[in-house]
Computed example of a mutant assay.
Amino acid sequence: MIVVCGIASERPIALVTDALRRRGLPHAVLHQRRFTDTPIDIRVDGTDVRGHLRCDGRTVPCSDVTGIYTRLMDWRLLPEARGAGEETLRHCQAWHEALGTWIEIAPGRVMNRASATATNRSKPYQAQLIRSAGFRVPETLVTDDPDLALAFRDRHGRVVYKSISAVRSIVRLLDNEAAARLPQIRSCPVQFQRYVPGVNVRVHVVAGEVFATRIETDQVDYRYAGRYGGRADLTPWTPPRELALRCADLATGLGLALAGIDLVLTDEGEFFCFEVNPSPAYSFYEDHTAQPISDAIARALLGR
């Protein structure tokens, strides 16, 4: 039995569920927003995990679960939690803590455990792991000092800024307009990086299987190209064997059965790695390129 945890209507969840259905694989969806009527009963005895989940109106014994795909949003942002009473909030928090604990210790293939996703909560820390895996990383500065940020821009010319944590941010150039707002970083350190021109590449690693997408864009952050009147053309791409192996090894080294790796290919033929996303919105790339990433996830969930 495979359990899919998250919001059923979200595209990545829906694609995995459809792939499991097409393959005739037994599965159940644990709807995150239905925490009030989907009880979780988990008991741990030594290395034995017992109990059951209530999924899709049926009871699923934990002992029957051999694979888990999880893409959970912050429970505090759920519509059912906003404005809810204190008792509901306590129940919501306890439900998610129980679910997170089970996902962390459940046997079988899990995409992904919280312990493996933790490196993305500190991008500077993750960058050190990426560099140790043999990838080049752009020169980086993390600071709350506006003068240091300006000096960093003077030294490298074009500089981008982004969040330090796992919270998604739009990558923007530190132009003069943004530089005028630098005094605001005194209350919140920001990550600055040398801008590396080239072609963006997103590599999805699914249990060692590699799917690469080449992105041609006229924007700094291609994910938001449409918002700013730009373009982003996504095409499937076959990476060099050495790069594919290195990406697979990087995901394995981070303990990730599923990973989205962000790279840029420079005009000189060098690859720089920006970060590794442990909960990638792979559906964006699958929808644009027809690469069977969701099917690979479904197949991988069968393995241990």
Rank of each mutant, 00 (worst) to 15 (best):
Y224M: 12
D221I: 06
A212I: 09
A212Q: 05
R223C: 12
R181Y: 10
A133R: 14
T213W: 03
A166W: 08
R155S: 05
F192V: 04
R168E: 14
A212S: 14
F152D: 04
P197G: 06
F152M: 04
T140S: 15
F135T: 11
R227N: 08
D218N: 15
R181E: 12
E209P: 02
T140E: 11
R194F: 01
V205M: 08
L173T: 04
V196S: 04
V167L: 11
P183T: 05
N176T: 12
A212F: 06
V171L: 02
P183N: 06
E139F: 05
S165F: 04
T217M: 09
D221C: 05
S165C: 08
V160Q: 02
R186F: 00
T143R: 04
A212D: 06
D147E: 14
A225Q: 08
V171F: 02
Y161V: 00
T140P: 09
V167E: 15
Y161H: 14
N176Q: 15
V205Y: 07
D218T: 04
E216G: 08
V137L: 11
D154L: 13
V142A: 12
D221Q: 05
R214A: 13
R227W: 03
G157H: 05
C188W: 06
R136F: 06
H204P: 01
P197K: 01
A133E: 10
I215D: 13
P189M: 08
I185Y: 01
R172G: 00
I215G: 10
R202A: 05
T217I: 10
A151M: 12
R168W: 14
G134P: 12
R172L: 13
I215V: 14
A166M: 10
Q191E: 15
R155I: 00
V159P: 04
E209N: 05
R202W: 01
S187L: 12
A166C: 08
E209D: 14
A180I: 06
Q193A: 09
T213K: 00
L173R: 07
V201H: 14
Y224Q: 12
V142W: 01
Y224R: 09
A178M: 09
S169E: 02
V210I: 11
L148R: 15
S132M: 11
D144M: 08
F135N: 14
V196A: 03
A151D: 11
Q184H: 10
R194L: 02
A178D: 01
N200P: 09
S132L: 13
V206P: 04
P138E: 11
V199T: 15
C188H: 13
H156M: 07
V159C: 05
V201Y: 13
G134S: 09
R223K: 12
A151Y: 08
L173N: 00
Y222I: 10
V205A: 12
A149R: 07
V220G: 03
R158E: 15
V160C: 05
S165D: 15
V171E: 03
Y195V: 07
R153T: 02
V167Y: 06
P189Y: 04
Y222V: 12
